[in-house]
Design a binder for these strands. Structure first.
Lengths: 204, 204
DNA sequence: GTCTATAGATAGATAGAC
DNA sequence: GTCTATCTATCTATAGAC
């Protein structure tokens, strides 16, 4: 009565697929509302399973949402490393911001945990997340100093300020303001935010 | 046994002072956490009165927070009209953003109701708030078109995009990121955000 | 108008059958 | 592992004494 290895693998695949669906739903919901406003009933309803089942996969609401954030971070890392290394540094920076804005428009980007969230302290205690943030920051930070050495990004700006300014685009309310106005296509919104971010509001 | 008019006025003054203290506490708390995370116990504790007393002044949590937001908006309107009309339009725009950033740093600025808040729909149904937003937008919008006509603000940008970009600075997470890093003075943070907002990240 | 006490609703999390 | 049913805590809001 030994189960075939393929069967075990299949069961594990199902489990992983289910967990991925849960994370995906949590991610979407965190894009719509705050961690505090989101409920486990919301998640269960969206996935289509009972709330109690969620707790077989994740120990708590905090664990579930942390896992969702780690997955987003992982997707960002994958995108970063997929970029052609020979591209000019500033182009890579633009590409990353563009990627963030597109995910934000697709409502697949949980709003970054500013102080306006109970999730923040939990996330910062999560080693997976904290390490991921450091890795991403190292890669982007290198591109920033590179672009500043080339004189493309303003060398007078502190690199950490540039980094945070780029991060902040991933939860810029301008995107939802413009989206709600229904005046522009998604791609136009992305272009506008990219332009004001890199070129500023003043005429050149 | 007719109470002297002065006495009535005094009582009313006390009432108004108390209500102002409540609004101020709510405002501070909304700067620290989301509407959903904030509780009426928080407010009562901060003011130093019983929770039930809050409901003698404001009918609900939504009403209280709406009133707090209206007060912030009113302060913004007062600042707008206090600006010397003869100033160049772009200077007035910079001044308004600076004012927002300073209030944000002082934690006196409730984070704007993006989609990430249950408060949003309540606020938009509040005539005082909605009218205030329109008035403020009209004033700032005029300055934007003026600055664009002068060629100081990029005339190619849609005015509504410029307006939203300026509004978004009032809840820019860059401010709290930099504040938490403890690397910079408040005034340096304000200058950095103002600079990246108007001049962009790219070197000029 | 302030308080204590509590009602009523809903959240996160768990128990136990299947 | 999924479900239904339930526990416990907490939050908004109210009742009623003073």
């Amino acid at each position: 009565m030994q189960p075939a290895p393929a069967k075990v693998s299949f069961k594990e695949q199902m489990l992983q697929a289910r967990e991925h669906a849960i994370l995906r739903s949590a991610c979407d919901l965190l894009g719509e509302k705050s961690f505090d406003a989101m409920t486990m009933d919301d998640v269960a309803g969206k996935v289509g399973i009972a709330k109690a089942s969620l707790y077989k996969h994740f120990g708590s609401k905090e664990e579930l949402c942390s896992a969702a954030m780690v997955e987003v971070l992982s997707a960002a890392q994958t995108y970063l490393t997929s970029l052609e290394p020979s591209l000019p540094a500033v182009d890579k920076l633009r590409a990353v911001v563009r990627w963030s804005l597109q995910r934000l428009l697709a409502q697949e980007m949980p709003l970054l945990p500013s102080r306006n969230s109970t999730l923040r302290s939990v996330l910062m205690a999560n080693k997976c997340y904290a390490d991921g943030v450091i890795q991403v920051s190292d890669i982007i930070g290198e591109w920033i100093t590179e672009a500043q050495a080339e004189g493309v990004i303003d060398p007078d700006l502190p690199p950490i300020g540039v980094l945070y300014t780029l991060y902040a685009r991933a939860c810029d309310p301008v995107v939802s303001f413009l989206k709600d106005s229904a005046l522009y296509q998604d791609e136009e919104i992305v272009d506008l935010v990219l332009r004001t971010c890199f070129d500023g509001l003043r005429a050149r």
